[in-house]
């Protein structure tokens, strides 16, 4: 049930131009493959969820998190990256 290489990235913050571009640029540079993106905007508040495959990723997970955090600070949004297993364990039996 666990795919070790899949992570879920969540982006939370006020909607503005360039959020997707900023986040995906980091992933593209690291050669991390985006499997799915969903986003909703509720009263200017953006929630974006990405499912990402790291099997071909060129950098370690820790470093990817750091780069995403930096990008998040630059754009002005909060970015979390977690292994998919957290959500599977909590919400699926």
């Amino acid at each position: 049930m666990d795919n070790e290489n899949r992570i879920i990235i969540t982006v939370l913050g006020k909607d503005k131009v360039g959020i997707i571009a900023g986040v995906t640029a980091v992933l593209a540079e690291a050669n991390a493959n985006i499997l799915d993106i969903s986003q909703t905007v509720l009263q200017e508040f953006l929630t974006m969820i990405l499912v990402v495959d790291l099997s071909e990723c060129k950098i370690e997970f820790d470093e990817l998190c750091e780069r995403l955090n930096e990008a998040g600070k630059k754009i002005g949004v909060q970015i979390n990256a977690q292994h998919e297993s957290v959500f599977k364990y909590m919400h699926r039996i």
Binding site: T10, L35, D36, S38, I49, V86, K88, H91, R92
Partner: peptide
Amino acid sequence: MPITIHPDEILETIR
């Protein structure tokens, strides 16, 4: 590959 976990569930965990 589709998101197998609903966005609401993901946000619940994060909250």
